[in-house]
Amino acid sequence: MSDIITARGLVKHYGDVVALDGLDLTVPEGTVYGLLGPNGAGKTTTVRILTTLLKPDSGSATVDGFDVVKKPNDVRRVIGLTGQYAAVDEYLTGRENLRMFGDLYHLPPAYVKERSAELLDRFDLTDAADRSLRTYSGGMRRRLDLAASLIAKPRVLFLDEPTTGLDPRSRLGLWGVIKDLVADGTTVLLTTQYLEEADQLAEEIVVIDHGRVIAKGTSDVLKDQVGGDRLEVIVSEAGQANLAAEALAPIANGDVTVNVDERRVTAPVTGGSLVLVEAVRALDAAGVPIDDVVLRRPTLDDVFLSLTGHAAEEEK
């Protein structure tokens, strides 16, 4: 299978701020590829360069074999983009929006009509198709936005944080739709700061931080990279979280992390359920009352923390 997106050494500065610092990327055709990172990591800048909205300061990128800087119009013909905002017209109806974008993709009118009806049906918008978007909920707008980016059957679809700001139900709905898309042969590049989302959707994940790729692989490979399991303890009183961390340090095979606000202490461990018994004894000996203790597989949150030294969703 060939690579449909390639990027080599992408650099982009905004004044003194380095948004991309030599980013490399190769996306095989027909996959869902996850670009994972916190706010400001360079995800949106990457998408904007690949969708020809922004020129890189240096480095190069191709989509479907076309250079994004030299052949922007060839790239635009094969891509669809859904950004962080619902980039659809507020005053047109759902159907009118799809017609407008279909016309601007230079598709035959009869095809646009048929395809619009199909997409509206698929996104559960048929009943609202002839209403102005002012009457749509946030989730409906996002679905229409996604439909608009699919009108021309793009070979590559870029989804920049598609579920940001959606309620959990709408998010689940959108995930279902994205999974269906890949079944149609579309390649999806998805950016997200929700680790759960990347875990759910993406076959392969690239973790970026400060404009560089810091890790890549399948979700399982990334988790294995962290090694072992996670022991998570919720202490009864926030003040005792640090005491608990000290007590757990001899059992852990890495740094113990403390979240005082959530009264949560997390330790990387190996050795299966026996560790659980050891941990409870150690905490009891230290006189730390606990509300909960669990042993779990590492999540991508843990992956991010061990790779970067900071949490994925921390505020900058």
Partner: peptide
């Protein structure tokens, strides 16, 4: 502001 210009600019128009 609504981002629709981004979409227009990503189209082959």
């Amino acid at each position: 502001h609504r981002g629709i210009i981004d979409r227009f600019r990503s189209l082959p128009m």
